[in-house]
Design a protein around this nucleic acid. Structure first.
Lengths: 143, 143
DNA sequence: TCTCATTTGCAAATCGTTCGCATTTGCGTT
DNA sequence: AACGCAAATGCGAACGATTTGCAAATGAGA
């Protein structure tokens, strides 16, 4: 992502229009510390005095996801999708069952395992998804 | 699970009524090779000439899940929940992006990693979810 | 400035799932 | 076997997250 947060170039490079809603949504995701729901993004846009319809947020996120600028994820037990900026890093999340905080980590225990799968199951791995649940240091004493 | 597929004892042991719908759903999940959606379960019940409402299937699955007889899961990119009989085994799924076949495996590369998380992040792990995507041996040549 | 394909406003529709209430059923008790 | 009653199901509506349709607005190339 460009240092000066200029998404115009990024959007143009992907062959799509650089609209104010798209840039605003990308900025909101960049500022967010954790993946956001559509409603959270929508409300943040409203706070910034932007006029936008919820269906537009959905459409915009769908376009940005299809261009790999944004990552869409759902998490076990959560029926709402969440979105985050795609930093092109390989990372996963630890999720606290108590406070629902999500902490990302980049060490991946699955990489070596994928080679074993190719050998044992004749399976060509292209991606994986890992989520780890438990209690963070703040919540482990209140469970 | 009982060898003679008699779920009456299982349901009674959990303190809930042993109804024909519940036994039928447990049997369908036992016969299934992969986790099933609510609609698939509903249609299979219909094929067996059972009269049932979709809302009853949802309620029954919710009760069976709460008693740990059934496992509910969602998978990346799939907006429908899926259900499978709980064999009390620790396993994960490899999912073929081509034919959507799901193959389970029991080796788990995450177990050792959980200890590292406790040490490094002061995080008490209680569960994890792992899905691996790619192409099975039948689809790798058509991608 | 003009043009036009793309995007958004606006609102309804869809889908997966849950809820409310009347009726039926499973099962413990007699 | 009959009875009673709490739980389960029939029936259909409701809910929330998401998608769709169409007219109007906008971004960007010429």
């Amino acid at each position: 992502m460009p240092d000066n947060n200029d998404y115009k170039e990024v959007l143009t490079r992907e062959g799509i229009k650089s609209t104010k809603h798209r840039k605003a949504i990308l900025e909101i995701l960049e500022m967010a510390e954790t993946p956001l729901t559509v409603e959270e993004i929508f409300l943040t846009l409203k706070e910034k005095h932007a006029s936008i319809w919820l269906s537009t947020v959905y459409r915009t996120l769908e376009i940005l996801t299809s261009k790999d600028l944004v990552i869409k994820s759902t998490i076990m037990g959560d029926d709402k999708a969440r979105y985050e900026l795609n930093h092109n890093e390989h990372k996963h999340h630890v999720v606290c069952v108590g406070c629902h905080k999500r902490i990302s980590f980049e060490d991946c225990p699955v990489n070596e395992f994928e080679k074993a799968l190719k050998e044992r199951m004749d399976f060509d791995v292209t991606a994986h998804k890992l989520e780890i649940y438990g209690y963070c240091k703040d919540c482990k004493f209140t469970k």
